[in-house]
Design a protein around this nucleic acid. Structure first.
Lengths: 224, 224
DNA sequence: TGAATTCGGATTGTATACAATTCCGTCTTT
DNA sequence: AAAGACGGAATTGTATACAATCCGAATTCA
């Protein structure tokens, strides 16, 4: 019995739709017509509707009664709001991680950084792996905070949105190595159990990505 | 045309179920059988299922495939996690509110406090109104932060859970007046645009409610 | 006696059918 | 020609029917 047999059909469709949205195959503002999704993904309208509701719960689509669902389209201000919250929550996560991660977890985190270093040295310029790695890095710190609700909010409610807009804005090429040194400093602070410093460094790290994002997005939304 | 005509049936059922859960008419761990809900609230299973999914999105019920939905039952640790996050986010909200609220909004906030004062003076001991008022106070500050996502997280994801467990743990009688003085100090800091102080006072205020909650809950879960 | 099993009812997941609302093109009117 | 009313097709919301899965009590076997 394969693993996917445990999933229900609506879960599978939800999963497929999620990746489609994050990859930009379904673009922001695009309509999700139920019948069209039935034709594309199979099944009937019932599981499709459930999948759409799950997407709504994750804030990936917006549903309006009798009018249907559309892929969420964030304004610059909404994106700023998200990053403002993320700044606070990931700072908190990093502070807690410095207090609560086990020594083993910290050791694994260091290994992860070493791997990233090797990857960047190998294929410099290829930023995709770094992006995934960056998410992985942040993910582990969030886990290290050992607060289930915090984990859920960051990884469940904000994660996909961040991923979505990251995927579509190509990062510049210097950023990975720069981010890596920031990661190193953060891990060092965690390793020394200096929670205040760890929080401060993480906040700066995210603040940097915010200004980076603004540089990329601002010119795009000039015409509006 | 009345306001409720704009709602869909599943929205109405969702609304009714929400209040039932918050009031404790549906107790933590209790099963939500679809057919039973159809008999009780009318309609058919389709809108009932949608309502249940909305409850799941708000973390008020937990659904497991093929097994059904149950009212969420939080362990002490999970409740601590929630308050830990709430501490951070409401502190943030208060800081931002001190920076972003308009003078009019601050004036209204002061009026609100005056009303609460009058209410407490009138029926001292009646803590219910204070509880509602307390939520109202917090709600306005969250709105004053002018961050839609923050508002959504606090009011959409955590609010109901907090309400639910507040409703069921009867507050002690001194608390309202004590809380009110804390509220006053917070508003004063906001009024002076001292965002750091405002954040600190709000964090203390919530910290107090956490320790209060622990006193009430801890003895209940001794047996486990 | 007790633990595993099996079988039937009950419950959830999915498919289909029907009702209500919206959306869009057309027409009318000024 | 532009703005608004009208009507039908398309889409969503709801109801019902069917399939798959789970739960529990009776049963069997060690």
């Amino acid at each position: 019995m394969s693993m996917s047999d445990f999933q229900t059909l609506s879960d599978k469709i939800y999963s497929e739709l999620t990746t489609a949205i994050v990859r930009g195959e379904l673009k922001p503002g695009e309509k999700l017509a139920e019948q069209a999704l039935v034709d594309r993904y199979g099944g009937s309208r019932a599981p499709i509707r459930e999948a759409i509701q799950k997407l709504e719960a994750k804030h990936l689509v917006v549903r309006v009664p009798h009018a249907g669902a559309r892929v969420v389209s964030l304004s610059l201000n909404e994106l700023k709001d998200i990053y403002e919250v993320r700044l606070e929550l990931e700072g908190m996560a990093c502070r807690l991680a410095a207090q609560r991660m086990t020594d083993e977890e910290i050791a694994e985190l260091k290994n992860l950084l070493a791997e990233h270093e090797a990857q960047i040295a190998a294929n410099q310029g290829q930023s995709y792996y770094q992006k995934a790695g960056d998410l992985d890095f942040h993910y582990r710190i969030i886990q290290g905070a050992k607060n289930a609700r915090l984990h859920q909010m960051l990884c469940g409610e904000l994660y996909h949105l961040v991923r979505m807009y990251r995927y579509q804005t190509s990062t510049n090429k210097q950023r990975p190595t720069h981010a890596l040194t920031e990661h190193h400093r953060i891990v060092e602070a965690i390793s020394q159990r200096d929670s205040e410093l760890a929080e401060l460094l993480m906040r700066r790290h995210i603040q940097t990505s915010i200004t980076n994002l603004e540089k990329l997005i601002e010119p795009l939304s000039v015409g509006r």
